[in-house]
Design a protein around this nucleic acid. Structure first.
Lengths: 162, 162
DNA sequence: GCGGAATAGTCAAGAGCTCAACTACGCTTC
DNA sequence: GAAGCGTAGTTGAGCTCTTGACTATTCCGC
């Protein structure tokens, strides 16, 4: 598969990143990648669950009656429906999540966090929090943490609006 | 990041995130995930290459004589050796990268960026830069960009050290 | 030189993700 | 109340990544 021609809508030559932007970009790219990798590794090694699966458990644990429609769950986990469907199937095999039919909508399904799943989450959560603290919050000053939040929220306003 | 308090003894209960930290954490987690997804999609759809593969091309293009030892390339791309080996194989199939034996070290291999690979990179780069600009730099003030770099470099000093 | 430890890279099996096709149900219209 | 369309969710093929084993080569102390 060879690269397709660039659509002509784009300017032929966009503004390159200057030296400052390059450094900011590299710092963001590397730090986010390394931090995510690190948190992922800590979580999988200590709790036996990936961050994607952990997020599903968290969202369900916070939902009323520990159950949620598949679509809504997918949205909250920033996952596609297909991905969520696969993931829930795996979690079902472990007995951590169960599927229920939705009475209000015959097309729908509910994902339910089982007691066993809740127990797994309760065991994993402290380890995960400790990891986030160690590699993120403990490294940053209060001002940096505030700035991180500000930047994140600014980007979210743009990205959520698509 | 619940579950809510579990006062009865878990081993070494860590300090939970307070409300401020929760918001900062969620903002970071969602914004980085959405931004990475967005850049990834832009890159794959417009240039037909994932960001991981793009990074390989970039690193090779900046290396002396456009070639680099496999291990060094893996380090720079934040990839495992296995992952890089697979990726280089795919890029080789496209004719964008070639393998060469290393004369100084019989165990070693060199990855070389071909002319065709360089051409693909030259075509992809402007689109990628435009995407990074649109979704990152255009959204942030100069102060936010400086803070982003500062935070990223602070985290890198911690994460690189291990 | 020689043998053991370390290093470079590849490979095979298994898991997760994406894309597109598919089933099943609900809603609207006539 | 049947047709047509949109929505909810699942499935399967193909790809990528991870882990751990494996080969080949180099390094180093003797």
């Amino acid at each position: 598969m060879s690269p397709r021609p660039v659509p002509e809508a784009e300017p032929a030559q966009p503004r390159w990143l200057d030296a400052e932007e390059q450094k900011a970009w590299r710092a963001w790219l590397y730090s986010t990648t390394l931090l995510q990798d690190r948190l992922e590794r800590d979580l999988t090694h200590s709790a036996g669950v990936s961050s994607a699966y952990y997020e599903i458990l968290v969202q369900l644990s916070e939902a009323p009656e520990r159950r949620m429609r598949m679509s809504q769950l997918a949205d909250r986990c920033l996952a596609s429906r297909s991905r969520l469907s696969h993931a829930v199937s795996r979690l079902e095999e472990r007995g951590w999540v169960a599927r229920e039919v939705c009475v209000e909508d015959g097309r729908g399904q509910l994902a339910v966090l089982t007691d066993q799943g809740m127990a797994a989450l309760v065991e994993a959560a402290p380890v995960h929090v400790a990891s986030v603290r160690e590699h993120l919050f403990d490294q940053l000053s209060p001002a940096q943490i505030a700035a991180m939040r500000d930047i994140g929220e600014t980007l979210l306003r743009h990205l959520d609006a698509r």
